[in-house]
Write a protein that binds this DNA or RNA. Structure first.
Lengths: 237, 237
DNA sequence: AAGCATAACTTGTATATACAAGTTATGCAA
DNA sequence: TTGCATAACTTGTATATACAAGTTATGCTT
């Protein structure tokens, strides 16, 4: 048996997104749902917990599960959404330009950020993201070559995550991110359309696989006026 | 019985933070833990799930739960951490100056951001945050007065959340946040030490109670060089 | 010695039961 | 009519059991 609670989550999440369930309404009770999906109450509860975590519902003891209003502008930098998904909901025309894709051996900087041995084979990937013709995002990736043997420019232009998860069979699991504002460097201003700005929003992230190996380090620089980060956060008591 | 799994979570989280458990090590198995804490395996699993969500451990089917490396610099804007907690780990000297605390009736702008009726009583609160003597954060809060009857300057200087949760008995539950970079306005440059910057990082957040009522809207403006946002994010498949 | 099946672990999922705790509507009593 | 106890719902927590699925070490077979 594989993930009945996941299937229930998908069904209800889809219904909420399709606005079949209006915001403010109560979901059917856990007992009713367990009958409808022909499963136990605990399995339904697992699905509801996921929905709650992702901001679809709010559970109220004694009352039920309230459907929350969905963000009109779902701009997800949160979670681990990739640029491909991000771009889709953001802009009219999107273009990715691969500036560099090189196989290298880890120098000191790469060693540190990827926490690997010296001379470990890595991919160095530089990409320029154009929204509506303007080069406003500059991504620099470092990836463990061992995890991504046959990386090509075509893949880098499309989606690395799709390739890794579907072709290579890797499971990306979690990431640590940092968002800061920094002065633009000469190399940035050479390739980006700066639009008069001197600073850039820099998102640095370390991405880990299921087995906790750090396999990717990304530095993503955004022109300030094109940067937006939205988040749904639950209070941890 | 109240939250045995929470107690187990607290114990293990504390152990990891105190570095009694080293990063990379395996936790005792779920069966061992359930014996140690004299409880069932399911209860242990709930505690481990929380630990996993919050970035303390990574679960590996067939192997066990690996302790993850804790962030050396745990700068939490993520979640719903309040400024008071944030400041503690960030800077040497921290000072909050209350610029304004007024009881008002909702105008059109307040109506919209708080999603309330016209003329609903609200608190308008302006605070200036000084780190090491520099005024680098400017917070503007709007709160439903019905939820915070006796707000005072002293409370605003200390912690509103402590007051609301401990005195009034409210339960803050979740929030939607947005982070963008905007041009500083005249009112900003008047009160803040801009340090030559023209832009500000603006964090807007809508905070909700357990019963899903929106009760607070905050606009927090940060001088770019003093802003940092870190996050632990799990991939949702 | 090398390779492979297997046993003995680990976590993941699904089920059933019991009771606690919070909400709401019912209906009786004053 | 008003007020209050209560019954009938809701979700929250804890327990026990069973089996699936992944990992690792053991030991036998070749």
């Amino acid at each position: 048996m594989q993930r009945k609670f996941q299937a229930i989550y998908d069904v209800i999440a889809r219904e909420i997104q399709a606005a079949k369930m209006e915001a403010g309404q109560l979901l059917p009770s856990e007992n009713e749902l367990s009958e409808r999906f022909e499963t136990s109450r605990e399995t339904v509860r697992k699905a509801l917990q996921l929905l709650s975590q992702n901001g679809y519902i709010q559970k109220l003891q004694g009352k039920g599960s309230v459907v929350l209003e969905q963000n009109k502008l779902p701009l997800p930098v949160s979670g681990l959404t990739s640029f491909k998904e991000l771009a889709r909901s953001m802009s009219q025309t999107v273009e990715t330009q691969v500036l560099a894709l090189k196989h290298k051996l880890a120098d000191e900087y790469m060693q540190e950020v990827l926490q690997c041995e010296k001379d470990t084979p890595v991919w160095e990937l530089h990409r320029l993201r154009k929204l509506d013709g303007e080069a406003v995002i500059y991504d620099k990736d470092l990836l463990l070559a061992a995890c991504a043997p046959a990386l090509t420019e075509a893949i880098a232009r499309d989606s690395i995550y799709d390739y890794l998860e579907q072709e290579v069979g890797l499971s990306i699991s979690y990431a640590r991110k940092e968002v800061v504002v920094e002065e633009a460097e000469a190399t940035d201003t050479e390739v980006m359309d700066m639009g008069g700005y001197q600073q850039l929003v820099v998102v640095r992230s370390a991405v880990y696989l299921e087995d906790t190996t750090l396999f990717q380090f990304t530095e993503s620089k955004h022109r300030p006026d094109k940067f937006r980060f939205v988040e749904f956060a639950r209070r941890t008591k």
